[in-house]
Design a protein around this nucleic acid. Sequence first.
DNA 1: CCCGCAAATGCAACAAGGTTGCGTTTACAG
DNA 2: CTGTAAACGCAACCTTGTTGCATTTGCGGG
Lengths: 151, 151
Amino acid sequence: MARALAPAQIDVSADLIRAAGVKVTRGRVRVLDALHSARQPLSHAELEARLGDPAEPAMDRVTLYRILDSLVACGLALKAVDTRGVFRFSAAGAQRQHANHVHFRCTDCGGVFCLKAEPPPPPRLPRGFRLNEVAFDLRGTCAGCSLREGA
Amino acid sequence: MARALAPAQIDVSADLIRAAGVKVTRGRVRVLDALHSARQPLSHAELEARLGDPAEPAMDRVTLYRILDSLVACGLALKAVDTRGVFRFSAAGAQRQHANHVHFRCTDCGGVFCLKAEPPPPPRLPRGFRLNEVAFDLRGTCAGCSLREGA
DNA sequence: CCCGCAAATGCAACAAGGTTGCGTTTACAG
DNA sequence: CTGTAAACGCAACCTTGTTGCATTTGCGGG
Ligand SMILES: [Mn+2]
Ligand SMILES: [Mn+2]
Ligand SMILES: [Zn+2]
Ligand SMILES: [Zn+2]
């Protein structure tokens, strides 16, 4: 009861996981759902907080690490290190939606913020070079961290 | 005795440190020397190993962290995170020259190419955000790799 | 529907990298 | 030379991430 989800919408994550050839577990589905509904790459700690569903029995810290590793291994998630040296995870496929705008990376908390502006056109490349991706990243301190530390 | 150093060469690090407006200590001089003579950015662990001078009393782990922080704070060293999430330090001045132009990173061979173009002006930031650094990186395959693989 | 087994999970212990608190020592301005 | 703020050494602590092992679970095959 109280399970009001659009039938066409449920189990998208489960299907992806099955298609990737690994076991479909409650944990993997929850984590992949969280990654899909996130607007920026999430750290292990942020995921743990976001997964705090009172109904669910709160998954183990190590299990979350292993789930993330398995999602990366089968190509469903991407892993990258942030400015603080902490790993952040994002749903694969979601990265293309971040291709066309600028990102701000807080050197203090490691947070990633999507800005509205789109990246400027790339300069002319030397002969023979093939462009694949443009990364226009701004680094500094976010509003929260600036406040907290900024005297 | 046994102190055979070219007179013009000695104390360059000490002078830099003094000019930066912080106290000149044996530890800071040793670390800045090590950073200057390194060919790549060094991690805390690598520095600790490299500083294993039997004559000196082997500086404390925490002190090394604090020395590195102080060198970064006064602009004599740069701190960056590597792909494993570990901080690496380098003498400033070496990289300063790469601050004001665009880079192309070959995803195939890992090479970094400096382009002539300077990075475009950053977009307006949300309220409270403080900008420190702008990175405009292009990713793709360089001329050599494009040729070799480009069938 | 049930079984068996590999894969996944939970828990405890561990490890590396980094930070904090505090008493002692040291650089250096006056 | 002296006083003092800054730097140092040491112990304890924290966060992020990993490993070993016993228990549970997804799921293919009967
Ligand atoms: Mn984005
Ligand atoms: Mn350059
Ligand atoms: Zn921040
Ligand atoms: Zn290349």
